[in-house]
């Protein structure tokens, strides 16, 4: 753990833009290894403008909390949480949640892979206060339980709408009011034929 603390002070000095790209990347990688285990790897990409984007698939759902704490130690800021059903999610029985952090201009994404059924993640609200709405939103849009959320009420969805609309990719038309378009167009095309 003391190694991790040393890394934190080092990253504060170097920063992603301070010319010490390798040092910065090494610090983040070491902090994540320290927190989430040996097999944790970060793939960094640098765009033409020099902006760094790091991608890291966490070895297990259990490593999310320690990894998030490590990012907080590095002065990271939670920027966004993306839940999604990846390609062939149903075949593989898997879903993913990506946690995107800002490290002074660099973006680090930690991805957890979860089972499609009965997915659970720990709430990060104790570490990042601003995770509150992000987690409330993902709980209502996806079939994911956030354990330990202080206020798990619905946020954006009206109470008359079914739970987890983003899970219902197929069939689509029966669930949304996709019929609206057809009804309107029938009237447009009919209205037109009445004309001389």
């Amino acid at each position: 753990m003391s190694d991790c603390i040393n890394l934190t002070s080092e990253i504060r000095e170097r920063g992603p833009g301070g010319g010490g790209r390798d040092g910065f990347e090494a610090c983040v990688a070491a902090a994540l290894v320290c927190a989430a285990g040996e097999e944790t790897e970060v793939l960094w990409c640098q765009d033409r403008k020099g902006v760094l984007t790091g991608w890291c698939r966490l070895p297990s759902g259990g490593s999310l909390l320690p990894a998030a704490r490590a990012v907080a130690e590095l002065d990271g800021r939670l920027a966004m949480v993306t839940a999604y059903l990846p390609e062939r999610a149903r075949e593989k029985g898997e879903r993913e949640i990506a946690y995107h952090f800002d490290l002074d201009g660099a973006t680090l994404t930690l991805t957890v892979i979860l089972p499609l059924q009965w997915a659970r993640v720990p709430s990060l609200t104790a570490i990042f206060r601003n995770c509150d709405w992000q987690e409330r939103e993902l709980m209502e849009l996806y079939d994911v339980q956030v354990v330990g959320h202080p206020d798990p009420r619905r946020l954006f969805l009206d109470h008359s709408l079914p739970h987890a609309p983003f899970e219902r990719l197929v069939p689509y038309s029966t669930f949304t009011n996709a019929a609206t378009g057809k009804v309107l167009w029938d009237k447009v095309l009919a209205g037109e034929r009445e004309e001389p």
Partner: peptide, 15 residues
């Protein structure tokens, strides 16, 4: 009148 770009969303109840 038509929902515009938002037509056919689960969250929209127009027209």
């Amino acid at each position: 009148v038509s929902g515009g770009v938002f037509r056919d969303s689960y969250a929209v109840d127009g027209p």
